[in-house]
Simulated assay, not measured.
Amino acid sequence: MTNRTSNKFSPEVRERAVRLLLEHKGEYPSEWAAMTSIAAKIGCTGETLRHWVRQAERDQGLRAGPTSEDRERIKALEREVRELRQANEILRKASA
């Protein structure tokens, strides 16, 4: 898993953008048209807003996939595994 970019937008901005989309998507010919319009007002790309909306849907149980809580837990476990592997490697080299 690669770390793409820093989080430029606060959680409040993300939540507001998702809420705006959900409230106003009926005013646009398509969900994507709503996303690109609202994203431009927020200062992000349509694809970024699409990602936020899909994650919010997963968090609410409306879409299959890992929730934000699950993703954080997975990252923590991956970090722990990496640290344990490094410690094992150090111990293995020290005992040789």
Results as ranks from 00 to 15, higher is better:
Glu27Lys: 15
Tyr28Arg: 05
Tyr28Thr: 06
Pro29Ser: 15
Pro29Ala: 14
Ser30Ala: 04
Ser30Cys: 04
Glu31Arg: 13
Glu31Ser: 12
Glu31Phe: 09
Glu31Trp: 10
Ala33Val: 08
Ala33Phe: 05
Ala33Glu: 12
Ala33Asn: 05
Met35Tyr: 08
Met35Gln: 09
Ser37Phe: 10
Ile38Gln: 06
Ala40Asn: 06
Ala40Met: 06
Ile42Asn: 00
Ile42Asp: 04
Ile42Trp: 02
Gly43Lys: 08
Cys44Lys: 04
Thr45Phe: 00
Gly46His: 08
Gly46Tyr: 01
Glu47Asn: 09
Glu47Asp: 11
Leu49Arg: 04
His51Phe: 13
His51Pro: 04
His51Val: 10
His51Cys: 12
Trp52Met: 09
Val53Met: 05
Arg54Lys: 14
Ala56Gly: 10
Ala56Trp: 05
Glu57Thr: 03
Arg58Asn: 00
Arg58Gly: 03
Gln60Met: 11
Gln60Trp: 10
Gln60His: 08
Gln60Pro: 00
Gly61Arg: 01
Gly61His: 02
Leu62Thr: 01
Leu62Ile: 00
Leu62Val: 02
Arg63Asp: 06
Ala64Leu: 14
Gly65Glu: 14
Pro66Cys: 07
Pro66Leu: 15
Thr67Lys: 04
Thr67Asn: 06
Ser68Tyr: 02
Glu69Cys: 08
Asp70Ser: 06
Asp70Tyr: 05
Glu72Arg: 12
Arg73Ile: 09
Arg73Gly: 03
Lys75Gly: 09
Lys75Asp: 10
Arg79Asn: 06
Val81Pro: 00
Val81Asp: 02
